[in-house]
Computed example of a mutant assay.
Amino acid sequence: MPLLVPPAPAPALLSVLAALSSPTAVLEARTPALRTAEGPLAAEHPLPVHVFEPAAVPGALPQARLTGWRFHIRAGARVAAAGETVVTPDGWVFSRFSEGPFLVSIERALLQAEALPATYQPHLLSVPGLYMLALWLHCDARAEAATAQPDPDDLLVPLAPAPPGIASHRVHRLTELAPALSVRLAPPPLMGSPA
């Protein structure tokens, strides 16, 4: 089924387009593929980026907080980089260009998602404490991207590279994977005082 990608806020897209039109921003980016790209560059495939917040109560669903939008930067037939924006008190601003294994992994995960029998709204879910990024497939395909929250029927596809013990590109039910992530993020138990 097709994915229903939520529209990016116009200021987020405009900030990435402004950075793409700035020779300084492109040439100073730490993305060799972007600096050497030939032809016009285009920002496409916007995905809202959320940060995973473990459930405050055992057995409850985790929360997600919108922190930005990520756009694929296409140079001809290939994706050369990602352009990222963040929300500030003054609105959406360009953050950075990036490249690396997550670019290919996101494309692969999106193809996997399109082959699923149901329609989902794609998001990126960042788990900073585990250095993990996942494609979050929200079951409410028409939800407002800024306020979307995890649902028991949502799916997660960990992107490569995934943390040890978590298989990348395996589709998980959110209710299966979220508790394991929360356990890994929990602070270690306090040890007793030395004797």
Rank of each mutant, 00 (worst) to 15 (best):
L177P: 00
G129W: 05
I73C: 01
F71V: 12
T175V: 08
V171F: 00
D140E: 15
E176D: 15
Q63T: 13
L34V: 10
H72D: 11
G100A: 08
L61W: 07
P164T: 01
G59M: 02
R96E: 14
G59S: 03
A109E: 12
D90N: 13
P158Y: 00
A115Y: 15
A56V: 11
L156T: 07
A77F: 15
P48V: 06
G100Q: 08
A43I: 02
A33C: 08
S98K: 06
L137V: 05
A60F: 03
V157H: 00
L135Q: 04
R65C: 12
I166F: 02
P101A: 13
G68D: 12
R170H: 10
A80D: 08
D140P: 02
P164F: 02
P117T: 13
D140G: 09
H172L: 01
L135P: 00
A160T: 12
P152A: 08
A55C: 02
L103R: 08
A115I: 09
D154K: 01
A143W: 03
A118V: 11
L103S: 15
Q149E: 14
P46L: 01
L66P: 06
T147S: 05
A141E: 10
D154G: 04
A55I: 07
L116N: 09
L177A: 07
A143Q: 06
C139T: 15
L111S: 11
R96K: 12
A134W: 00
V51M: 02
P152C: 07
H123S: 09
L41D: 04
S105H: 07
P128C: 07
